[in-house]
Design a protein around this nucleic acid. Sequence first.
DNA 1: TAGATTGTTAATCGATTAACAATC
DNA 2: TAGATTGTTAATCGATTAACAATC
Lengths: 233, 233
Amino acid sequence: MIFLDQPDEIKRVSVAVIKRLPKYYECLGNLLKNNVERVSSQELSKILGFTASQIRQDLNNFGEFGQQGYGYNVQQLYLEISKILGLDTVHKMVLIGAGNLGQALVNYGEFRTHGFDIVAVFDTNPALIGRKINNVPIYSTEEIEYFIKENEIDIAVMTVPKGEAEKVAGILEKTRIRGIWNFTPVEIKLENEDILIENVHLIDSLFTLSYRINENKLQKRLLKQKRKIFPRP
Amino acid sequence: MIFLDQPDEIKRVSVAVIKRLPKYYECLGNLLKNNVERVSSQELSKILGFTASQIRQDLNNFGEFGQQGYGYNVQQLYLEISKILGLDTVHKMVLIGAGNLGQALVNYGEFRTHGFDIVAVFDTNPALIGRKINNVPIYSTEEIEYFIKENEIDIAVMTVPKGEAEKVAGILEKTRIRGIWNFTPVEIKLENEDILIENVHLIDSLFTLSYRINENKLQKRLLKQKRKIFPRP
DNA sequence: TAGATTGTTAATCGATTAACAATC
DNA sequence: TAGATTGTTAATCGATTAACAATC
């Protein structure tokens, strides 16, 4: 007879940690390529610019991957993190909107390398339907729902014009899709909370850069404004 | 005679706040379009999903834009935030790497709408040099340094293959460019700290989505592993 | 004026860093 | 074994939220 000591609630991993995971993955991938066998949190800290403490904390959200006095086995940690990121399985994707950006993404090899496989493209333009991009067929948007259901698609990439975004999201909501990778500037809201949305708001990124370029100028202006003028006591 | 009460050090605005600024800007832009005249932090909270308290804190990093009992004037706040983001001036940009992604970005109208103006494209491919994308001329990469110096370019968009990234960054470092909008997966390190780098690491974004899709599965697995088996006392 | 809502101080929450016993 | 380095607890830091006086 045994007792099971099961935690009653799941401690959710913070977004900050999740955003660092791809960095760990990439870094370990590089080390692996260079035939580095083991690595300490100290060494990772030097490469990545996070503190060693933070790295150990981050990793311990998911398990005990290291060994005292040794550090981490590069290959093993790399595999663990790839599992955590879900990169140990192939993700079937469709892309909706075969404009410039859509075509760029279909042609980009890096995604397939990591198991993200765009198997179909959808567009409303009759001139495109029936053609192929990078050997991936283009179908009519009318077929999205049927295709996703038939082909067990995980992820939909949305690269449609912003006016189309809501409509496409509505169609996707009727399927068993797991995630939407949204390149439109529209904030997608779905009833179905099982469908995860990851936004790539390029204009936000550019605005952020613009802010930083402008920052010094701005602060000088603010300082001036905030000066207060007192009459002599 | 007057005394000037000048703060001795600048309080830096946190990254979290900066990342929310584009959201404020977009939201206020929409309100303005709908002829909304005034808005309270309460109402903004409903639209944006941040707390009213956070919104007031964020804005007060930059000035006192509101009025007790009234709220914020939409137009005025919109203009203030556009100034903060540096959107009140035109930014001249060049794009380096006329591949699929590069072409997509040159063709994307949204940037110009907000004053980000791509005035030249550079590529190594002789077949492209001399041609135009969306009326923007393509030049040889050899001309980057000269062109940027002559034309007072603010921002360089890097859409070259990852093998070229370091080299291009080296060229850019020799210019008076203010920022690099980096679409390559390479982590650019420059001596010159005046050049700001904004990364768009698409693959990281996709990995993050994959993590979240995989999360439930993962946590079940982790829970199982973390169960500890005790012999009966 | 009374009601509304700001700007700002104080309290809380969560994430990062430091420290160190455990242990390879 | 001695040295190294983990996993983890405790301390610190910073960001978010709550509360409220100021004031339009």
